[in-house]
Design a protein around this nucleic acid. Sequence first.
RNA 1: GUGGGUGUAGCUCAGUUGGUUAGAGCGCCGGAUUGUGGAUCCGGAGGUCGCGGGUUCAAUUCCCGUCACUCACCCCA
Length: 423
Amino acid sequence: MIRGIKGIKDIIPDEMPKWSVVERMAHALAHAFGFHEIRIPVFERTDLFVHSIGGSTDIVEKEMYTFPDKDGTSLTLRPEGTAGVVRAFIERGLKTYEASRKLYYIGPMFRHERPQAGRLRQFHQFGVEYVGTSDPSADVEVVTLLWRYFSALQLPGLSLELNSLGVLADRQAYKKDLVSFLKTKSDLLCGNCRRRLDVNPLRALDCKVPTCHEATNDAPFLTDFLSASSKEHFDRVLQGLQALAISYSLNPRLVRGLDYYSMTTFEVSCSALGAQNAIGGGGRYDGLFETLGGVPTPAVGFAIGLERVILALPESALPAPDPWVFVAAFGEKGRAAGNTLIDSLRSNHMKADTDYHASTLKTLLRSADRLNAPYVVIIGDDEVANNHVILRNMATKEQQIHPLDTASSAISERLGFRKHVET
RNA sequence: GUGGGUGUAGCUCAGUUGGUUAGAGCGCCGGAUUGUGGAUCCGGAGGUCGCGGGUUCAAUUCCCGUCACUCACCCCA
């Protein structure tokens, strides 16, 4: 037997109702906020990710699925979506299209990590990118969409944290100060943090090793190093969120794992999730376009892990299943009439199905019961002889007779009408 | 990459201090007066006990290895 790949899951039909809800809500809210869908390739040149995400990040250092093309070009399965969107934006000249200011995507991402609860090697993200404005209102809008999306799906135990990384000059001044501080505490730091003291000292701030946490207790805050304009930008973002009654907390330790972030960063965690509790996050990346060879263009976006959303999704977020009829047709004439009726119901956009394995009324009803059919149409030789069918409500056991020639439209109308009333 | 846990029926799991035909619940199939489902009762199908090797008269059970799944570290969504 040939097995699937570790950390790469099939999404089986049983799980699809949740996926449908989660994806439909993403499309619906993204559209409501004026974002337009973009579909970008699942693999790109490796350089794209190295230059955007950053060579010293974990993603690039050890988590990418990289392989040579036939001509030797190094290609990589996308570990995230922003790099590809920005590449497409620059390469295709999307700047000239009004719709391209606000983009969103849904699709699979790939990272070679050890799988665990809420972490897979192929996982799916819903992300948005608001391109071309540095107005703090854009930051607010993106965070608002993120928050409204989770609220609409009724996810429990959410908390939103924000931080500002400032502009590059702010961070450089801060890094200098932080490194000299950390060096005084280096005996407390874990090996990992000590190693990246020079390349990525900010990471020590959100290291979970207790001694590191202790060591960084009195560390200087990046917030204190923000320039006046950075600070003003961040304040306006926070005011915007307050005005919309979106509650958040400030986390000066919030450091994101991708190098391209600047200014506003944010993350939503979900207490219903377990160890991998980051369900969505993002921030501003004003320098990325330039890094990738485009004209300097400010932008802000987020990415949401859909598997994690599904793990936290309550049953109440699922819509009631559509009404449908199971056609219980038996006997020679009954089955023939049943097949015609099924086709006619389907032509009326009424979901109709049967079970050819069952041949008696008893087994047909049992099958209908197992399939959770709310209604069953009974049609045997007797019904055909009498020119009618029986419509049975499985929950109430109530049965009514419909003339055979108008049964399809009568049933479609009746159950279709119910559908509109219920939803 | 590192650590822990677990691999026995379709699913959830017992069990064998090494010993003949390996169990339960759920599910599935059939039946319990002929054309009315779920409940109950009766019957039935279904397992190389993850894989490989070792010890032994004998291994599903003990030992070693290996693979898979899983949780956690790390990191992120």
